[in-house]
């Protein structure tokens, strides 16, 4: 079953490989290539490659008050970062956040999608409700959750006082602040993940379930042996998107915790922003940006190397 399956990537690679050997450009082709590639190369070069190289360049220097490079330090900025406990903890915090967010987003999204895929009267209401966070902007979500977390007048504080429980100060305790950010991010992500997974579950052919019913398989068995394998490409897509998205998470952190308390939620992207645009330390933040690029590239490669092979029908 696995051996005979073909993914889109495989024939593509073959075509490329054969082309590369017999690739000769005549003058006319070269002209067309220049015309068609020129504009996009220009835009990419100006807005992607030039800033990337410039970041790499700045990361090898110290920058002064005006943001100009002054003293060449080679890999000094990188050495400083790697030997700084602050930065290392930031790295671990980021990884923890990314994996927690991805795990809960995909797990809850799958649960809700599975529930909402039942054919029951009125199910459309739930489908709408579950995907409603897609329409909520980051700023609105952050303020909404800030109201909930407020230790004096917030919803959680009110609930605690009703039940005579001690009031928990979500955003000032390092551990709970991290969970507060995770909860908010998962809540934000859920709508989109739910919708994509629901679409995938609904496109699983009904005949498979009918056959399983005839065999007398339980609904649990059907979920793990039919639904999950059938939607695995979508699961792969959703988790990749969520991992990359959470690495880049900025808005919620900026509005909810500002990286605090005690740097407990100071993720890499937020740290880069703060070092550059609060402290004006462009060299340090450039070095951090390069490190982040390497990490994301590593995870992307890892996913394509390993996870894609596991995707099966």
């Amino acid at each position: 079953m696995l051996k005979t399956s073909t993914t889109d990537a495989i024939p593509d690679k073959k075509v490329n490989a054969t082309h590369r050997h017999s690739f000769r450009l005549n003058a006319k082709d070269k002209y067309y290539a220049a015309v068609f590639l020129g504009p996009s190369l220009l835009v990419l070069g100006l807005f992607v490659f030039y800033p990337m190289l410039k970041t790499l360049y700045i990361s090898l220097f110290l920058t002064n008050t005006l943001g100009n490079t002054t003293v060449y330090v080679g890999l000094g900025n990188y050495v400083n970062l790697i030997s700084s406990p602050d930065f290392i903890s930031s790295l671990f915090v980021t990884l923890f956040y990314v994996f927690a967010v991805t795990f809960f987003t995909v797990a809850l999204g799958l649960l809700l999608a599975n529930l909402a895929s039942q054919k029951l009267p009125g199910i459309a209401i739930f489908r709408t409700l579950y995907s409603v966070t897609m329409g909520v902007s980051v700023a609105v979500a952050a303020i909404f959750w800030l109201f909930i977390f407020n230790p004096s007048t917030g919803f959680f504080a009110l609930m605690s006082s009703w039940f005579n429980l001690p009031v928990m100060n979500w955003l000032t305790n390092p551990t709970s602040a991290m969970w507060a950010v995770i909860i908010t991010t998962v809540w934000m992500n859920l709508g989109f993940t739910f919708l994509i997974l629901l679409g995938a579950i609904q496109s699983v052919p009904n005949t498979l379930y009918e056959a399983a019913d005839v065999e007398g398989a339980s609904s649990n068995f059907q979920f793990f042996h039919i639904t999950i394998p059938m939607i695995s490409p979508t699961l792969f897509f959703v988790s990749t998107i969520t991992i990359i998205g959470s690495f880049k998470s900025f808005g919620l952190i900026d509005m909810i915790t500002k990286g605090g308390p005690t740097n407990a939620t100071n993720m890499l992207v937020y740290r880069i922003y703060k070092d550059a645009f609060y402290s004006g330390n462009y060299s340090k933040s450039s070095a951090e940006a390069i490190i982040l690029t390497v990490i994301i590239a590593f995870f992307t490669l890892l996913q394509f190397k390993f996870l894609e092979k596991k995707v099966n029908y």
Binding site: T172, K258, G260, P261
Partner: peptide
């Protein structure tokens, strides 16, 4: 009571 840091 600790309200944390920042504008919030």
């Amino acid at each position: 009571i600790d309200y944390g840091s920042g504008a919030n």
